[in-house]
Design a binder for these strands. Structure first.
Ligand SMILES: [Zn+2]
Ligand SMILES: [Zn+2]
Ligand SMILES: [Zn+2]
Ligand SMILES: [Zn+2]
Lengths: 128, 128
DNA sequence: GTAGACCCTCTAGTTGCTACAGGGTCAAGA
DNA sequence: TCTTGACCCTGTAGCAACTAGAGGGTCTAC
C-alpha cells in the first residue's frame, strides 16, 4: 500500500505519516524501486495506535512509551493502565481548570452587561 | 521602574515582558542612558491587561484587539462583551470535548483493569 | 578590583504538526 | 510522441506563546 492509501484508511494526512516516521512514531517502511514508501498491514495497525492515542490526547512521548510497551511480548497490561490513569488525571485537572476559567470569564462579562457607564468595567478590572 | 521590578509586580518573567514588547503587546518604554528599559505606572497597567487576559486564555491576537478597544476613548463596552462571549463559547466547547475524552479514556482503561489475559485489551483496541 | 546582580540583543528550542519549494515518476489521453 | 495530472520524494520554514541560553555590558559593594 502506498502512502496516500494509508493516509485514507487512517484518516491522517500524508505529511503527518512522513512526520511520524521522522520522529520515530512509525517505523520506516521498505521502499519500492522508485523510492516510494510501501506499507504493510502491520504498519497500518501501528499507525492506528498512534492516531487513536493522539486523538485521546496522549502526548507524543507517551505514545512512544505505549509503543514500546506494546512491542514487548510480555506486554505489561499494568503499565498501560498506569499510563492511562495518569493521563485521565491530567484531563480531569484540565477540566476543573477550564471550569474555573469559564466562571471568571462569565463574571467579568456580566460587569459589561449591566453597565451604562462610559468606561468599560471589564477593561477597568483587567487593568487595575 | 526597571524590568525586573515590573516582572515582580506583574508576575511574569523578564523574558516574557521583552517578548510582549517584540510582538507588540506592550509598547516600548523609554531607555535610560545605559540602554536599560524604564517603565512607568501606565506600562504596568497595560501589562496587567495583557497578563490577566492571557491568564483567562485569550489568544494573543484577541488581546491585541482588546488593547485597541481599550485605547480607544469611546471604549466600546459592547465589543468587549462580544469578545468575551465568543471566548466563553470556546472554553465551554473545550470543556465538553474534554469530558468526552475523559469518558473514552476511562472506558479504555477499564478494559485493562479486569483483564487477566496475556495481551493488553486496551492496546488491542487501539490497534484494531 | 572583582564578585554579584542586574541589563542588553539575538538565536534556538519547545509541541505537533502543516505548508511550501523544487524536484522525480508514471499512467492515460490528444 | 508528447503532455497533462496525480502521485511521490527531500528539506526547510511556519504556527502559538513563550523559555532558555550565549555572549556580552553596567553598576554597586566589599
Ligand atoms: Zn492493559
Ligand atoms: Zn465592557
Ligand atoms: Zn512542486
Ligand atoms: Zn552570559
Amino acid at each position: 500500500m502506498r502512502i496516500s492509501e494509508l493516509s485514507r484508511t487512517c484518516g491522517c494526512s500524508v505529511e503527518t505519516i512522513r512526520y511520524y516516521e521522522s520522529v520515530g512514531l512509525l517505523s520506516a517502511p521498505r521502499r519500492a524501486a522508485n523510492g516510494y514508501r510501501v506499507y504493510s498491514d502491520e504498519h497500518r495497525k501501528w499507525l492506528q495506535l498512534v492516531r487513536r492515542s493522539r486523538d485521546l490526547g496522549l502526548p507524543q512521548d507517551e505514545v512512544r512509551l505505549l509503543i514500546k510497551i506494546a512491542r514487548d511480548e510480555s506486554a505489561a497490561c499494568e503499565d498501560v493502565y498506569r499510563l492511562l490513569s495518569s493521563h485521565v488525571q491530567r484531563v480531569s485537572t484540565r477540566i476543573r481548570e477550564l471550569k474555573q476559567l469559564e466562571k471568571s470569564l462569565i463574571r467579568l462579562q456580566s460587569r459589561c452587561a449591566d453597565g451604562r457607564s462610559k468606561k468599560c468595567p471589564a477593561i477597568d478590572e483587567l487593568m487595575k
